[in-house]
Write a protein that binds this DNA or RNA. Sequence first.
DNA 1: GTCTATAAAGCGATAGAC
DNA 2: GTCTATCGCTTTATAGAC
Lengths: 195, 195
Amino acid sequence: MKRVLTERADAVSALAEVFREHGFEGASLSLLSKATGLGKGSLYNFFPGGKEEMMEAVLADIDSWFATTIFAPLEQAHDPAAAVTSMIEDVTAYFRSGRRVCLVGCIGLNSSGAAFAIRIRSYFARWISALAQCLETAGVPTSLAEPIAEEVVSGIQGAIVLARALGDEAAFLRVIHRQHSTLLDAIARTPPQSA
Amino acid sequence: MKRVLTERADAVSALAEVFREHGFEGASLSLLSKATGLGKGSLYNFFPGGKEEMMEAVLADIDSWFATTIFAPLEQAHDPAAAVTSMIEDVTAYFRSGRRVCLVGCIGLNSSGAAFAIRIRSYFARWISALAQCLETAGVPTSLAEPIAEEVVSGIQGAIVLARALGDEAAFLRVIHRQHSTLLDAIARTPPQSA
DNA sequence: GTCTATAAAGCGATAGAC
DNA sequence: GTCTATCGCTTTATAGAC
């Protein structure tokens, strides 16, 4: 009975890949139609608002995936070191070692992202705050946790840009490994808080 | 006698700003025409190859600016600490504290950058190697200089993505400040090599 | 809900007057 | 060397048959 929903969900992930690879402007309806296997008419049936509504659906899908897979585990971490390690692994897999770009970060870079500014902003704000919260759970003081979280999230984005530019997945993995170490060092350096 | 050349150079910087703000696909000829103040016919007179040749000229211009302003001073640094500080200042000004995106990094992110892959790759490769060379001049061992240089260049790109996404120049400045410290620490930590 | 056909607009690119 | 007019094509989006 929710067949239409699952079909829409299938379409969304196909749409996402086209937006990722070609950007918002470069993702033409013919490309989107081909990738989803749906005619233009069907696409407009699912997304009456056209490309903008498609992108909005894609961003919402990404947001919910990150919320459950990345953000929530960080926010509710019992074992902070394990949580950050898990984040690094999930992110490395998600971004395919830098072969796959971060759509949220990408569309924020040019004018086509203006329509999605609030969503883009909240994605990064929550990622940073979730990671900072995880570090604070480990006892890292807020004054240290916030800038470290900001630097690591920023560093992941930089790793994607660099890996794509160099065509070198190894570069992504090296940079991400350093971010991982930064997080673990911050946790390890913190003297255990005895209650 | 080189009037035509200076006019072409003026056009190139105007073109660059349109490509930065709208991306390659989003930069339509009407936008490019308006920004340069030249009609389509004049644009095709300067750039017979159309948009692709315009972008190629823009990238060449960026490349030469970075070569003289950023890369060469790093490669020939007598005072490595001063050189990295100078790089950080120049880069902060050039990217307008993250309001201005890195065109080279941006077009590498989606399929429109495929035509410029070699230029994109060499830009980042030279930036990293120039920075690593500067660190080595300071006595930092290659095994340390290379990954640090890679991380800093990557970190600058990440800072741009983050600042644009959050609409927050201060985030750019904070991240860049940490990259600066990373570089200075690496230099300071190195025991002076007495000849 | 799916498709094909089509409308209207904008695109990159060219031609030709000046 | 600059512009305007225009070509041919693709774009987004809609309409209507099934």
